[in-house]
Simulated assay, not measured.
Amino acid sequence: MSWRILALSALGCMALLVAIGGTWLLLLPGSPARGSAPAISRDEAEATLAALKPPKRKRPLIAIVGINDMSETTDYLMPYGILARADVADVLTLATQPGPVTLYPALKVQPHATIAEFDAAHPDGADYVIVPAMTPENDATVLQWIRSQAGKGAIVIGVCVGAKVVANTGLLDGKRATTHWYSVGDLRKHSEIRYVADRRLVVDRGAATTTGITASMPMALTLVEAIAGRAKAEAVARDIGLAAWDARHRSDAFGFTRPFALTAIANSLAFWNREQLGIALTPDVDEVSLALIADAWSRTYRSRALTLAATAQAQTSRGGLGILPDRIADDWPAKQTLPAAVALPPAQALDETLRAIGARYGSRTADFVAMQLEYPR
């Protein structure tokens, strides 16, 4: 979900609060629903895997495409990091134009190629195209390229609000789909698309979509399983610290609630207490853990995560991606330096980060971030 959208939402909340004395808050639901999500039947799970089998190559080619500004951090980096770690496919990060990709709400990376360079090297196209959330969601260049890849037989996967980008290509017309809870209403404006609740991953005839940001983790593992089998997916899941990754989800546990709105307002108003928190970049940093940590801290409305390095040179991540530092610095104030959770398995790093956010800013801010990430804690 776009940082800008959430910021505008918070400003809108404040304006309403001033205008009508906060009466609108009483109309919002309180705490979200609790309880377990319904189990996924074996038949449905097997059908999902069958629909995601490699369409062309034994060792598939996977392209993760973004625009050079405002592509979502975790949507872009988590699928790459998990799939590169699995080593069951050739995985490339792409941008529409030359130069780095500035992700939101944090991090800057060097993609492997532009879409033009990819097309020149692979005229037969990718097996899978992963589409993160991006702003704007109707960039003509990226929409045309996604359509072209689908025409060459690629399975297109919209992660989080990337589903709206895929919807704008027309490739979801007449199909089932899901997206981040915040954008379900926008997806439903496409009358030809049938929204599916209570699933983190929905696959329908060459197109897949997911719920919010953290759903890219089970999506990537499901893709590993479809490509290389259950045993390989289980090994990768153990490595990243995830016990299960099926499509079960409880959609009514996520929404624009009264606590969410109040936290957005309170944290936005605390502008005098905004922090810049430093993360030291190191060689072989786990790009998945880094993405989750930087993304989560930058969604508190109290802080922004910045990466630090002694030189401007990109640091090569565990999966071989260049991460560019935000600041050239040998050190950072100790109170504004984030703990080295990047050394933890990604799922554990996210849990530890949410605990640290709760300790620093309170449990409501940790819940506020988890809600944005659509993370079933």
Rank of each mutant, 00 (worst) to 15 (best):
P100A: 01
D119I: 02
I357H: 03
V156L: 06
L306M: 15
L281N: 09
R59H: 13
L77F: 06
S317T: 07
L321P: 09
P333W: 04
F256P: 07
V156Y: 00
G255V: 05
T316G: 06
I279Y: 11
L201E: 01
T257V: 00
G320I: 07
E137K: 14
C13D: 14
V131H: 00
G278V: 12
G362E: 03
I155G: 00
L338D: 01
A113T: 00
T257S: 15
T141K: 15
V369F: 04
A237Q: 07
R176D: 10
T74M: 13
I155W: 01
D186V: 15
R4D: 14
P54R: 02
P29C: 01
V109Y: 02
G229Q: 08
P32C: 05
P376H: 10
E192C: 04
F368D: 02
T179Y: 09
T300V: 03
I5N: 10
K152L: 13
I328H: 09
P345H: 09
S41M: 05
G99W: 02
A19C: 12
L321M: 13
R355S: 14
A116K: 09
L92I: 01
R274Q: 14
Q149D: 01
F271G: 03
S148V: 06
D295A: 10
H122E: 10
A215F: 03
Y195N: 02
H112V: 01
P79S: 06
R188P: 05
A270Y: 07
Y128S: 02
P132N: 00
D90R: 13
P60H: 08
E374F: 04
A312I: 00
A86D: 03
L11E: 12
L143C: 02
L94I: 00
R85T: 13
A349N: 08
I82S: 02
G162R: 12
G174N: 07
S216R: 01
A270W: 08
R176N: 13
P55A: 06
M217Y: 08
D246C: 09
D286F: 12
A63G: 11
A167K: 12
L77D: 06
V159R: 03
S191Q: 14
Q149A: 10
R250H: 07
F368N: 05
S191F: 09
L77G: 06
S268C: 11
R304S: 14
A63E: 01
R355C: 10
M1H: 14
E234W: 02
L201C: 04
V109S: 08
